[in-house]
Design a protein around this nucleic acid. Structure first.
Lengths: 175, 175
DNA sequence: AATGATCTCATCCTTTGGTAGGAAAATAAG
DNA sequence: CTTATTTTCCTACCAAAGGATGAGATCATT
């Protein structure tokens, strides 16, 4: 019985077209143009109004504030799965950069009050490093890593590192 | 294929005083008023410009988009502790359809000669279960699980379970 | 200057995980 | 039936991870 070891396996990701990638931006631009047209039309229609400028300004302000909020929320939240780039898996020597589009769920991170260091350790953990290796990489002692681990597990409400990894991935805290 | 996942977070926040609570809104209102004044002043000063309206509209749009983004980011972030009465994090069962598009790389699995049992254990491992829990789930002894682990680690050419999980995910052996 | 948060390190102890070696059933496959 | 593989289980030892607790150092904020 032999076990042929695969030295290294790479995967490759295909990305959607430019149109798919910048969908949000395009939609935003179109709606912007549309709104300006609308405003122009309003201008022609209600030019008689005395305080038209104030009305326009207010409308523009409100509309674009809402759009700004929408944009910010859209960009700060991770994309839904259906909108994510699919990874192409080829049989042998295939190259992937899975989750290159990863966007951390920063609001959840701050909600869970995870510190920078804790996140660092979480990532290294998820990459399969031992406490000792993590300590070496971060130039701290194992004790420190363990302490961070404890806080991390408490904040994530888990008991083991494997659980922490699973949960962190699921919640988009780490790639 | 759906995986029963956890997570739902509810946040309840109260506040100290009206002023403290609506600080952001007040600031926003003031800056809004200030900007309108500024624009009024600009109107008086450069009324001669032909395309003044477009300029105003554009400026207002840009400024308020930025403000909207700022507002959204400000509001989406949790308030500091000093301003919070309590944050309750409740977990309950929720179904998330993450990676429902998963297709195991079966050719690679057979290439690595991973047996059914080993794959089962690999999955449970990746879900954060301990050896004891895996043994209980599969109705076998811990010894058995450990043996499978050994073979698994050897076949995957890794040293730790966290490495095994990372590699297995990367190679699409498990979801 | 005081405070709170973060990061750091340590010790002691318990639990879990991993290695090494062997071995007995069950299950295909030839 | 024989052979190879898979699955099962064990003992014993050592390594790694985790829990509890205390405490010093740093840094930003108030």
């Amino acid at each position: 019985m032999k076990y042929p070891q695969i030295l290294d396996i790479y995967t490759m990701s295909g990305s959607k077209s430019f149109l798919g990638k910048h969908k949000a931006i395009i939609i935003y631009s179109i709606s912007l143009a549309f709104l300006l047209l609308l405003l122009k039309w309003l201008e022609l229609r209600f030019i008689i109004f005395k305080h038209s400028f104030e009305i326009y300004a207010g409308m523009i302000a409100i509309i674009f504030t809402v759009l700004g909020i929408w944009l910010a929320l859209k960009l700060s939240k991770p994309k839904p799965d259906s909108d994510r780039v699919e990874t192409v898996v080829v049989e042998k020597e295939v190259y992937i950069t899975r989750r290159e589009d990863f966007v951390p769920n920063s609001s959840l991170i701050s909600q869970l009050e995870l510190s920078k260091r804790e996140l660092e350790i979480l990532e290294l953990m998820a990459q399969g490093h031992s406490n000792e290796e993590i300590a070496a990489k971060l130039f701290v002692s194992i004790s420190t890593v363990k302490t961070h681990n404890q806080n991390l597990f408490f904040k994530l409400d888990v008991k083991r590192r494997t659980q922490a990894i699973e949960k962190a991935r699921r919640l988009d805290l780490i790639p």
